[in-house]
């Protein structure tokens, strides 16, 4: 009678699952803080089910085949979820490796008396599981990248505060890269704050901007124009010497904009414009 791996695995499905669960639960690194045993069991059961069904269906070990897409989909889903939940790559890898261990253990148990067959079948399982491990990592990394991109967006959103430095004077320290999306947020926040506070001077401080290329310059010019349309004046401060020189070489004309080297000198300028005076108190000795 020809040996049928599909049938064997199907019969041993429960066994494999139990072994695998045991492997996972025994692991000291199991993240019970991130996943409950029920969830882990549900994920594991689904994966074993579809994996066994698939090995039975085609017998092809080539993961590019269409018939593997359900398994890859389930595994991908698990990997993405784990990336978002904050599992480490090692923990995620362990999830797949320990399944391989479980299947190989069952094979050993069932057909261990026929070394040739055991070798053949183990090799097949190895090839499939290695392929699945690669898929898991690819998807895991994609999941992490998504997390990073989302955080980048969040940082851009929260890192553009508008500060009321004085009655009538607003300051906006910009830190990091001023891309199109960020400029939009900065501009909206600034214009809204000008309306809300009735301020007449806004200081845009770019000490924390690493480079001013023509796009950033265009964004700055746009922001200044919009501020002027609202009836307020916009000063740009914190232009470092190397940035000033670079901007000139690029050929950008900032002469229509009031620029100051530091936030302090911009503030001094704003005080003068508003006819405010800051003086050191003279203490008189009697």
């Amino acid at each position: 009678m020809p040996f049928n791996i599909a049938k064997l695995l199907e019969n041993q499905k429960k066994n494999i699952l139990e072994l695998w669960m045991k492997n996972q639960l025994e692991d000291e690194g199991l993240r019970e803080d991130l996943i409950t045993n029920e969830e882990l069991r549900a994920q594991s059961e689904e994966l074993v089910g579809s994996l066994v069904a698939n090995i039975g269906a085609g017998g092809s070990t080539d993961l590019d085949g269409d018939n593997w897409s359900p398994v890859i989909e389930i595994l991908g889903g698990i990997a993405i979820t784990r990336a978002r939940q904050g599992f480490s790559p090692r923990e995620t890898g362990k999830f797949v490796y320990s399944l391989k261990e479980a299947i190989l253990e069952v094979l050993q148990e069932q057909i261990g008396d026929d070394p040739k067959m055991l070798f053949e079948e183990s090799r097949k399982i190895n090839r499939i599981m290695d392929g699945l491990t690669v898929v898991t990592f690819e998807t895991f990394i994609k999941g992490r990248e998504e997390v990073i991109l989302r955080q980048t967006d969040e940082i851009a959103e929260i890192s553009t505060p508008v500060i009321r430095v004085w009655d009538g004077i607003l300051a906006l320290p910009i830190i990091g890269t001023l891309d199109s999306q960020r400029t939009q947020i900065v501009m909206e926040n600034l214009l809204q704050e000008i309306v809300d506070t009735g301020s007449s001077i806004a200081i845009l401080d770019i000490s924390g901007v690493p480079a001013v290329d023509s796009l950033v310059a265009q964004h700055l010019i746009k922001t200044v124009s919009a501020t002027r349309l609202m009836g307020a004046e916009c000063i740009i401060s914190g232009i470092r010497p190397e940035i000033a020189q670079t901007v000139v070489h690029l050929g950008i004309d900032l002469s229509s904009i009031i620029t100051k080297s530091s936030l302090a000198s911009a503030l001094a300028y704003a005080f003068r414009t508003l006819r405010l005076e800051v003086r050191k108190q003279v203490v008189q000795n009697k």
Partner: peptide
Amino acid sequence: LRNRVKEVAVKIKMGLLNQTKLITAASE
């Protein structure tokens, strides 16, 4: 990429002005 360019520029001891020029050109 800008960070990568900055890294190699610092590695060969490029001055701050030249670094800024290079990074800005790269950015364009």
